[in-house]
Amino acid sequence: KYSDMIVAAIQAEKNRAGSSRQSIQKYIKSHYKVGENADSQIKLSIKRLVTTGVLKQTKGVGASGSFRLA
């Protein structure tokens, strides 16, 4: 599940300011076997996790910027 992968990526990075979408994508692609549409799936999952309150956006708008666990 992409949401689990995103949470794992943010936990692994341990950046106080949060993790960027690009760094999350890079982590997921190197640690998991994902399909061609992974980028758009990650983007959608990040937006969903922010609206449900699992992630907090520290910089930027939408799916860009930095995110950390709430």
Rank of each mutant, 00 (worst) to 15 (best):
70 A>H: 06
20 S>C: 04
51 T>L: 13
61 V>T: 10
20 S>T: 14
3 S>L: 10
2 Y>N: 00
15 N>S: 10
37 N>W: 07
39 D>G: 05
4 D>W: 14
4 D>N: 07
9 A>P: 00
69 L>G: 03
60 G>T: 08
6 I>D: 00
57 Q>D: 03
66 S>N: 13
69 L>W: 04
24 I>H: 02
34 V>H: 02
59 K>R: 10
6 I>M: 00
6 I>W: 01
59 K>V: 08
57 Q>G: 04
67 F>N: 03
22 Q>G: 07
43 K>D: 15
18 G>Y: 04
29 K>S: 06
39 D>A: 09
17 A>L: 11
65 G>T: 13
50 V>I: 08
28 I>Q: 00
34 V>D: 02
12 A>E: 04
22 Q>K: 09
5 M>L: 05
14 K>Q: 12
39 D>Q: 06
24 I>Y: 00
40 S>L: 13
18 G>F: 03
39 D>Y: 09
6 I>G: 00
49 L>K: 00
8 A>K: 07
57 Q>R: 09
43 K>E: 15
1 K>W: 10
52 T>K: 11
15 N>R: 08
23 S>E: 09
53 G>K: 06
4 D>A: 11
61 V>I: 11
37 N>Y: 06
24 I>E: 00
39 D>P: 05
61 V>E: 10
57 Q>A: 09
13 E>M: 15
23 S>F: 11
14 K>V: 05
47 K>A: 12
9 A>Q: 00
48 R>N: 10
39 D>M: 08
16 R>C: 15
10 I>H: 02
51 T>Y: 10
19 S>N: 02
70 A>F: 06
61 V>S: 12
23 S>Q: 09
47 K>Q: 13
38 A>Q: 04
33 K>F: 08
68 R>I: 15
12 A>P: 00
58 T>P: 04
36 E>Q: 11
66 S>L: 15
64 S>L: 13
64 S>C: 13
35 G>N: 06
56 K>E: 14
42 I>C: 03
50 V>Q: 03
19 S>D: 01
21 R>A: 14
20 S>M: 03
60 G>N: 07
16 R>W: 11
31 H>N: 08
45 S>V: 14
13 E>K: 06
21 R>Q: 13
15 N>F: 05
41 Q>C: 15
38 A>W: 06
27 Y>W: 10
16 R>M: 11
29 K>C: 07
54 V>F: 06
43 K>Q: 11
29 K>T: 07
45 S>C: 15
65 G>E: 14
49 L>V: 00
47 K>W: 15
55 L>K: 00
46 I>T: 01
16 R>N: 10
12 A>S: 08
53 G>D: 02
3 S>H: 10
47 K>D: 13
20 S>R: 02
25 Q>T: 15
55 L>N: 01
67 F>H: 04
26 K>G: 06
44 L>C: 15
39 D>H: 05
5 M>N: 01
31 H>M: 05
28 I>E: 15
13 E>Y: 09
22 Q>W: 08
20 S>W: 04
32 Y>L: 03
61 V>N: 12
11 Q>N: 07
39 D>W: 09
37 N>I: 06
28 I>V: 15
44 L>K: 14
60 G>R: 08
16 R>L: 10
25 Q>I: 15
21 R>W: 15
43 K>W: 15
34 V>E: 03
30 S>F: 07
3 S>A: 13
13 E>D: 11
13 E>Q: 09
38 A>L: 11
58 T>W: 06
21 R>N: 06
54 V>I: 10
37 N>T: 05
39 D>L: 07
49 L>N: 00
3 S>P: 15
40 S>T: 12
30 S>A: 12
53 G>L: 03
68 R>N: 07
66 S>E: 08
61 V>P: 11
68 R>W: 12
58 T>L: 12
50 V>N: 01
3 S>W: 06
35 G>V: 04
64 S>Y: 10
14 K>L: 06
12 A>M: 05
29 K>M: 09
64 S>D: 14
68 R>P: 03
35 G>P: 09
53 G>H: 03
20 S>Q: 04
9 A>R: 02
58 T>V: 13
2 Y>F: 10
69 L>P: 04
31 H>W: 03
46 I>Q: 00
33 K>Q: 11
37 N>P: 02
5 M>V: 02
1 K>L: 15
65 G>C: 15
2 Y>D: 02
64 S>A: 10
26 K>A: 12
1 K>Y: 11
42 I>V: 05
5 M>C: 04
29 K>H: 08
69 L>H: 04
48 R>M: 14
44 L>M: 11
32 Y>N: 02
41 Q>I: 12
9 A>C: 15
44 L>V: 08
25 Q>S: 13
26 K>C: 09
40 S>P: 05
30 S>L: 11
34 V>G: 02
67 F>E: 04
16 R>F: 09
32 Y>T: 04
43 K>S: 13
5 M>I: 02
52 T>F: 07
41 Q>V: 08
59 K>G: 13
52 T>I: 14
70 A>P: 04
33 K>P: 11
27 Y>C: 03
33 K>N: 12
45 S>M: 14
69 L>Y: 05
7 V>A: 09
64 S>G: 14
25 Q>Y: 11
10 I>G: 00
63 A>I: 09
67 F>G: 03
59 K>S: 10
63 A>M: 12
59 K>W: 10
40 S>N: 11
59 K>H: 08
58 T>N: 08
27 Y>K: 01
36 E>T: 11
48 R>V: 12
45 S>G: 12
69 L>E: 04
30 S>H: 08
68 R>K: 11
61 V>D: 12
9 A>M: 02
40 S>D: 12
47 K>H: 11
48 R>A: 10
54 V>D: 15
66 S>Q: 11
65 G>Q: 12
11 Q>G: 06
69 L>N: 05
55 L>C: 02
6 I>N: 00
63 A>Y: 08
35 G>S: 07
39 D>F: 06
67 F>R: 03
51 T>D: 14
14 K>G: 14
5 M>F: 05
53 G>P: 01
69 L>I: 09
57 Q>T: 07
15 N>C: 13
66 S>C: 14
64 S>E: 15
64 S>Q: 12
43 K>V: 12
56 K>M: 13
12 A>F: 06
48 R>S: 07
7 V>D: 00
36 E>Y: 08
70 A>T: 07
8 A>G: 03
48 R>K: 10
62 G>C: 07
55 L>M: 02
40 S>Y: 14
41 Q>Y: 11
9 A>D: 00
36 E>D: 11
45 S>E: 15
22 Q>S: 10
48 R>G: 06
7 V>Y: 05
65 G>S: 13
54 V>K: 05
48 R>C: 15
17 A>E: 11
21 R>T: 14
27 Y>T: 00
66 S>M: 13
56 K>I: 15
49 L>C: 04
24 I>K: 01
33 K>R: 10
35 G>I: 04
11 Q>M: 14
51 T>Q: 14
66 S>P: 08
12 A>L: 03
38 A>I: 13
50 V>E: 04
34 V>R: 01
40 S>K: 15
54 V>N: 03
63 A>P: 08
52 T>P: 00
52 T>R: 11
36 E>W: 09
65 G>I: 15
8 A>T: 07
26 K>P: 00
41 Q>P: 01
46 I>K: 03
63 A>D: 12
44 L>A: 12
56 K>D: 05
38 A>T: 04
35 G>T: 06
37 N>L: 06
43 K>F: 14
5 M>W: 12
49 L>D: 00
55 L>P: 01
35 G>D: 10
48 R>H: 14
8 A>C: 13
6 I>Q: 00
